[in-house]
Design a protein around this nucleic acid. Sequence first.
DNA 1: CGGAATCCACCATGATACTG
DNA 2: CAGTATCATGGTGGATTCCG
Lengths: 141, 141
Amino acid sequence: MTDQPPLADAFSRWGSAGLDAGTCPIRNVLDRLGDKWTMLILVALAAGPCRFGALGRSLPDISKRMLTQTLRDLERDGLATRQVFPTRPPRVEYRLSPLGRSVLQPLSALVDWAECHDQAIRQARARFDAVPSQKTASQAE
Amino acid sequence: MTDQPPLADAFSRWGSAGLDAGTCPIRNVLDRLGDKWTMLILVALAAGPCRFGALGRSLPDISKRMLTQTLRDLERDGLATRQVFPTRPPRVEYRLSPLGRSVLQPLSALVDWAECHDQAIRQARARFDAVPSQKTASQAE
DNA sequence: CGGAATCCACCATGATACTG
DNA sequence: CAGTATCATGGTGGATTCCG
């Protein structure tokens, strides 16, 4: 069956087992990518090294708090590196590590899918919402 | 530069612009995939049609509440379909739609990456945490 | 400039109990 | 069996303020 991708294979090892972020690699990754800013920063950094302030400005309206925290997490996981220049005023540059760059490819596949099927999803959603008996809690009101 | 994947391309259209889930396809997708249960259910369904109860049992310890809600969202987005058999007791089967099956492939790429680099990430994390001056708030304590 | 610290609001999720 | 309803809560993220 070509209907059954190797995905089910990987998940049979982790899904049924423990699946919490502590032991499951998939959750380990998706939990981070799934948060509000990580992938945005990943992509911003894909363009090349970037300073803290520039990063903040290139993103819509992230707070310094979240920018700092997300960058720290990326650094902690070895996806990005931080370089401090002891100048005055201070200057800090972030860049993707090789590991960080390697995630761009699979992430890219997902982004492609997203762009490609975005309309189909929105249409399905509109169709679903047109039936008043069906409610989801995630509906915009 | 082979360092610059088409990712940056897609993001230049959506990242700098509005990026909220309402207008950005990437967030539109990742917000759903990023939640706690969606991809687990996706994979469980990849194995074939499944009843509500069986789905619940095949997942670690999801509550009925979350199972229902996540399934509804998948149905709403057209990734899964719901079929009710008016028997006694009631029987409801869920299955992936063609659209739902199509996401398994890019998701697979990400899962592969996750499994492949899981150790590297954990090691980086351990190294980072070994330095007491560095704290992340996401550290286990 | 690049953070750290604090306070607070909200939303996602869990637990429990009830229903057709 | 397959949900719905209600309540409780913990974590995520925003705003603000202070520091080197």
